[in-house]
């Protein structure tokens, strides 16, 4: 099934070069794939995976290994950031 992975700020470096311009990678994944599996697949350092959103909705740390991605969903991840 098709999903998208978006990585921002310092995490952009973990995207293939061609995806860095958009911060977005469109992917085929197995049904049942979770954010935790994606984090592992792309070797993202745990402490940099601070803000995890699926279709803009916050996924609490405790649900990263259980919330499965559905067809067409967008998983977006940020390191610790803030603004004003």
């Amino acid at each position: 099934m098709k999903v998208a992975l978006k990585l921002y700020a310092t995490l952009s470096d973990y995207l293939p070069a061609e995806a860095r311009q958009t911060n977005r990678l469109d992917l085929e994944v197995e049904p049942g794939t979770t954010p935790a599996m994606m984090i592992e697949r792309y070797a993202l350092p745990q402490k940099l995976c601070h803000l995890v959103l699926i279709d803009g909705v916050f996924v609490p740390p405790g649900m990263r290994a259980t919330r499965t991605l559905e067809e067409g969903e967008v998983l977006a991840i940020w390191p610790p950031v803030a603004g004003g």
């Binding site: 978006k6 921002y8 700020a9 310092t10 911060n23 402490k47 601070h50 803000l51 959103l53 803009g56 967008v74 977006a76 940020w78 390191p79 610790p80 950031v81 803030a82 603004g83 004003g84």
Partner: peptide, 22 residues
């Protein structure tokens, strides 16, 4: 991590994609 790394590296502007995504 926010005041030690996030803000100096990306500034407040890092929120643009966060808030848009939300």
């Amino acid at each position: 991590a926010v005041t030690g790394q996030g803000l100096p590296a990306f500034g407040t502007q890092v929120l643009m994609n966060v808030i848009n995504e939300m």
